[in-house]
Simulated scan of single mutants.
Amino acid sequence: MSLNVIRTEIPDVMIVEPKVFGDDRGFFFESFNANAFEEATGVKRTFVQDNHSRSSRNVLRGLHYQIQHPQGKLVRVVAGEVFDIAVDLRKSSPTFGKWVGVTLSAQNKRQLWVPEGFAHGFVVTSEYAEFLYKTTDYWFPEHERSLLWCDPDLNIQWPPLDGAPLLAAKDANGKRLADADLFE
């Protein structure tokens, strides 16, 4: 399996492009191979949970993280398109408080590796999107936190939407970076 890895402005966050084999019948690709992932990225992780969500246009999920039992996430879209965000919450990191955004879609088949110590979220830019992600630890609701998606200190450049984003209560009430629980 051949993977193309693109390092983002935050080098620990990587875009992973699988080798896609296609013809007039359709396409095939390995969506995950532990050996190839480690060889291409230098990241060796065990994934313990797979999640699948479907959301409508303008749904914004995030920015989520777990302060204990932090989760690394390998995320991708299998239907539609999202703008995906990772925010570095590691106080000791030279990129602390910085963010990267990447368009993930069923068409481009890109994946994003979001390491532990980051908040993660996305907004749906197509009619709907189906979003899959593998996690390195289980979900612990008591440790889940939400960073405010529109924190002016982060200045995330979300794409233009058709109206206001559709948010869960926990996301509408997320904490600003200055008040958030952070990683060392």
Score class of each variant (00 low, 15 high):
Gly22Ile: 00
Ala178Arg: 11
Asn108Pro: 06
Trp113Tyr: 15
Thr41Lys: 06
Glu30Pro: 05
Leu147Gln: 07
Lys170Thr: 00
Ile15Cys: 13
Pro70Asn: 02
Asp137Met: 00
Lys91Gly: 03
Val102Leu: 03
Thr41Trp: 03
Glu142Ser: 13
Ala34Cys: 05
Leu177Gly: 15
His69Pro: 03
Asn108Cys: 04
Arg25Gln: 06
Glu184Leu: 01
Asn35Arg: 15
Ala40Thr: 09
Ser55Asn: 10
Arg176Ala: 10
Lys73His: 12
Ala178Lys: 14
Pro18Val: 02
Phe37Val: 09
Arg7Ala: 10
Glu142His: 11
Gln107Leu: 01
Pro94Ile: 01
Trp139Ser: 11
Leu177Pro: 14
Gln66Arg: 07
Val48Cys: 11
Thr103Gln: 10
Asp151Gln: 15
Asp153Trp: 04
Leu112Phe: 04
Gly42Asn: 07
Glu17Ala: 13
Gln111His: 08
Asp153Pro: 05
Ser2His: 12
Ser93Glu: 02
Phe29Thr: 09
Arg110Trp: 02
Gly97Pro: 02
Gln68Glu: 07
Leu132Gly: 15
Ala40Ile: 06
Glu144Ile: 00
Thr8Pro: 08
His69Cys: 08
Lys175Pro: 03
Thr136Leu: 02
Asp181His: 06
Phe183Ala: 11
Ser126Arg: 09
Trp158Thr: 13
Glu144Pro: 06
Met14Gly: 11
Asn35Met: 11
Val102Met: 02
Gly101Arg: 03
Asn173Phe: 02
Pro159Gln: 08
Phe28Arg: 14
Ala40Leu: 08
Thr125Glu: 05
Ala34Pro: 13
Leu60Lys: 12
Val100Glu: 03
Pro152Tyr: 09
Glu39Ala: 15
His120Arg: 11
Arg110Met: 02
Cys150Trp: 11
Val102Ile: 08
Asn51Met: 04
Val48Asp: 08
Gln71Ala: 08
Asn51Thr: 05
Leu167Lys: 13
His69Gln: 14
Phe47Arg: 02
Phe96Arg: 07
Ser92Tyr: 00
Leu148Cys: 14
Ala36Glu: 12
Asn173Ser: 09
Ala129Ile: 01
Lys175Ala: 05
Phe37His: 14
Phe28Ile: 09
Arg7Gln: 13
Pro141Tyr: 06
Asn4Thr: 08
Lys170Tyr: 07
Glu9Pro: 01
Asn33Ser: 07
Val20Tyr: 10
Asp50Val: 00
Ser55Arg: 05
Glu142Phe: 04
Val87Leu: 09
Asp50Arg: 00
Lys98Asn: 08
Ser146Trp: 04
Pro11Leu: 04
Asn108Phe: 01
Leu182Phe: 01
Phe47Gln: 02
Trp149Tyr: 13
Arg145Ile: 01
Ala86Glu: 05
Ala129Met: 07
Val5Pro: 12
Ala36Asn: 09
Lys175Leu: 07
Phe140Asp: 14
Phe37Ala: 14
Gly97Met: 00
Ala36Thr: 06
Val59Ser: 12
Asn35Asp: 15
Trp113Asp: 07
